[in-house]
Amino acid sequence: MLTSFFKALANLFKTPKTIDYPLTPIAKDEKYRGVIEYNQDECIYCLKCEKACPPGAILFVPVDNPPINEKNKKGLKYHYNPHLCIYCSECVRACPKPQEALWQSNKKGHIGIKDDKINDDWFELEELKK
């Protein structure tokens, strides 16, 4: 009983372990697994990343005004959903040009609110694919 009293008194003068999160930002390592980023000009539209993704978070869908690239023969556009992705980076390992067309950054996903309609829009894109 007396030892716990002395321990509590000693703890009063030590530095706290808490990091004051929203006010002091925490720096992330550069190899942290964050969102996937894409460069439209270098892509060769081989569709290997779409077949390699386990939950299906990358979709190439035919649209009306597609991006202009000489390899894009069927008029496809790249769509990515950070709320379906599991951040395993299988797509980066399957891509033939891994650091120029598709790479993994160390930023985190954005927080969605009700007006973004995350789930409803993705169901529409899956319908267009079939």
């Binding site: 999160y21 950070p82 709320h83 951040y87 985190k108 996903g109 927080i111 995350i118």
Partner: peptide
């Protein structure tokens, strides 16, 4: 009906 969506697998405490 949902108001806030937090992504990540697993989402970190900062998010």
């Amino acid at each position: 009906p949902v108001d806030v969506y937090v992504p990540g697998c697993a989402s970190s405490p900062e998010l």
